[in-house]
Design a protein around this nucleic acid. Structure first.
Length: 589
RNA sequence: GAUCCCGUGGUGUAGCGGCUAACAUGCGGCCCUGUCAAGGCCGAGAUCGCGGGUCCGAAUCCCGUCGGGAUCGCCA
């Protein structure tokens, strides 16, 4: 037996007991005679003392940071005045009688016992050391608590956790698949699942009624701070439900979770706000609004319809819009600062940025000479802009204006600290469009996915205007992130056929790619729907971390590499031969 | 595919045209019996990511390249 107790559990109640501990040297303080070590295991720290009056102290004196020790000694109270209120074990210490070095350690490439920032490349290369640090440990524990809460909550409500295959089938829609070559059937490939979407629907056809899975999903696309090539979703599906039944489960789950395991956080509103996709786009410029602060977008196209500003005129003539946001207290921005905002806007796709500074000395800014006093007044009435505020205008096509102002809004959020980091602003965004026109490929794409149920009343629009078809798709958003996405699914094979056809899939293609789905829907498929919250993103937001790598034990870097194991790496000739794969690599420069 | 930012001892930073490259921490040695980021003294450790250029002189300016991050595209 290596230990009788853990480091973090010792209390004055243990005084007088002889205990054996095992752990890492968090810190060592050698006073020549008496030596202190803060011994660490995952439960915490405890001070062990090597006393010259006690035997076997040499190992204590020799020990260095991160050595692994086994220590046996008597728990005793610390001398009066020597208690450490910062440690939960700070009232006591362990007087060492025996110390065994289980394993010494070389000096570490990164310090485990501080929270100072370390280059992320080094952290990832030595991730097993990085994970010893308190911040990472806390994140991993939080992750466990979140997943455990999910399992308990859903199990209590009749959901079954069911595993689905990792080796499945490539699909034509959606993200790029990771392919896995089949050895037994040369020339064919599995695809790793982008999500268990089809399988969970088939589980509904099977009658399981309420299913969930903590499911790994894989998508071969470029990485971002909130996107990893493999990530984890709470995949969830229910039969005989309407949209609000699904939303109620999600809202109930995360509301209870916040109350139970996130005492430092509070919900912005309960019940959660709901808005349509269209409303979210109008008011926030995107479909994942951060509702922790205002600064909404305003459409000024009507007020400025008669503007003398040629830029505005031309945009309106071409079907564009003039929209704005109001940056509070920013009227004193310098020319340089405004230029930076203009550059930022152009990076987002806008052709330019016009500003109106409402200073105490009067109206200034690049748009001042084009906007009449009456128009300024109307703008102030609509937006609530006041003296000392800066109004930022984007005149462009509606998508560009929304995208740019949305990005500016988040820029000011961070610059002016407008969002309370302890608030969780959950909300639902509803009624997404069913299809988006893909200009590049000149075809319709599914906005959510092709199994999403179009609104019944919009079915006639398949023949007239697919862009106007709304769907029973919904997103759960949190603090400016899409944290779940779901829909009521198509359970009728005739509607499913219609969708596939509009997406431009040929009959043979529908059969080869989705024949099993179409067929299944002909054998008594129940109405069903579900959603899939992104575990990594949620935990990132719960933990207040800036990216999801911080809440994943072994994440990949921006180039999709595991820098610790150095993956991906070349396959051997033998492996390739078995798979009947020949490489055709691009010429090296 | 594109844009921007970063790269200086093990780690974190400073220096940004004139240095023998500074500081903290870590590391090694010595001293020290109550510390808890212990303290004191001594020491080792960087050709400033790499290559080229400008200059009397480059960590510092320019170009290229590699590595990392953020963003656009991409992500049903």
């Amino acid at each position: 037996m290596y230990r009788t107790h853990t480091c973090g559990e010792l209390r004055p109640a243990h005084i007088g007991q002889t205990v054996t501990l095992a752990g890492w040297v968090h810190r060592q303080r050698d006073h020549g005679g008496v030596t202190f070590i803060d011994l660490r295991d995952r439960t915490g720290l405890v001070q062990v003392v090597g006393d010259p009056n006690l035997p076997e102290v040499s190992a204590i004196q020799d020990a260095r940071n991160e050595w692994v020790l086994q220590v046996t000694g008597m728990v005793r109270p610390r001398p009066a005045g020597a208690e450490n209120p910062n440690l939960v074990t700070g009232a006591i210490e362990v007087a060492v009688q025996k110390c065994v070095v289980l394993n010494p350690a070389k000096p570490l490439p990164l310090a485990v016992n501080t929270d100072e920032t370390v280059d992320e490349n080094i952290r990832l290369k030595y991730r097993y050391l990085d994970l010893r640090r308190e911040r990472m440990y806390n994140n991993i524990v939080l992750r466990h608590n979140v997943v455990k809460f999910i399992r308990d909550y859903l199990s209590e409500r009749g959901f079954l956790e069911i595993e689905t295959p990792m080796l499945f089938k490539t699909t034509p829609e959606g993200a790029r698949d990771y392919l896995v070559p089949s050895r037994l059937q040369p020339g064919t490939f599995y695809a790793l699942p982008q999500s268990p979407q089809q399988l969970k629907q088939l589980l509904m056809v099977a009658g399981f009624d309420r299913y969930y899975q903590i499911a790994r999903c894989l998508r071969d696309e470029d990485l971002r701070g909130d996107r990893q090539p493999e990530f984890t979703q709470l995949d969830l599906e229910m039969s005989f439900v309407e949209r609000d039944d699904v939303l109620a489960v999600g809202e109930g789950l995360f509301t209870a979770m916040v109350q139970e395991i996130l005492p430092g956080k509070r919900l912005l509103a309960s019940p959660w706000p709901r808005m349509t996709y269209t409303e979210s786009m109008e008011r926030y410029g995107n479909d994942k609004p951060d509702l922790r602060f205002g600064m909404e977008l305003h459409n000024l196209s009507d007020i400025l319809a008669a503007s003398e500003f040629m830029v505005f005129q031309n945009v309106l003539k071409n079907g564009g819009v003039i929209k704005c946001i109001v940056a509070p207290g920013c009227a004193d921005y310098t020319r340089k600062e405004v230029d930076e905002l203009t550059t930022f806007s152009k990076e987002q796709g806008a052709k330019g940025l016009a500003t109106l500074a409402l200073t105490a000395e009067g109206v200034k800014g690049t748009a001042q000479k084009f906007i009449k006093p009456a128009e300024v007044e109307a703008i102030q009435t609509r937006t609530g802009a006041q003296t000392s505020d800066l109004v930022l205008f984007i005149a462009d096509s509606k998508p560009v204006a929304n995208k740019t102002l949305s990005a500016l809004r988040l820029l000011f959020r961070d610059r002016l600290n407008l969002a309370d980091p302890n608030v969780l602003a959950f909300a639902w965004v509803l009624d997404f469009p069913m299809f988006e026109y893909n200009e590049e490929d000149k075809k319709w794409d599914a906005a959510h996915h092709p199994f999403t149920m179009p609104k019944m009343e919009d079915l006639p629009k398949f023949e007239t205007d697919p862009s106007q078809i709304l769907s029973d798709a919904y997103d759960m958003v949190l603090n400016g992130y899409e944290t779940a996405s779901g829909s009521i699914r198509i359970h009728r094979s005739d509607i499913q056929q219609k969708v596939f056809q509009l997406l431009g899939l040929k009959d043979e293609e529908i059969q080869s790619k989705f024949g099993h789905m179409i067929e299944a829907f002909q054998f008594g498929a129940p109405p069903h729907g579900g959603m899939a919250p992104g575990i990594d993103r949620l935990i990132m937001l719960f933990a207040g971390e800036p990216n999801i790598r911080e809440v994943i034990a072994f994440p990949k870097n921006q180039a999709g590499r595991d820098v610790m194991a150095d993956a991906p790496s070349p396959a051997s000739e033998k492996q390739l031969r078995e798979l009947h794969i020949k490489l055709d690599l691009p010429e090296e420069k």
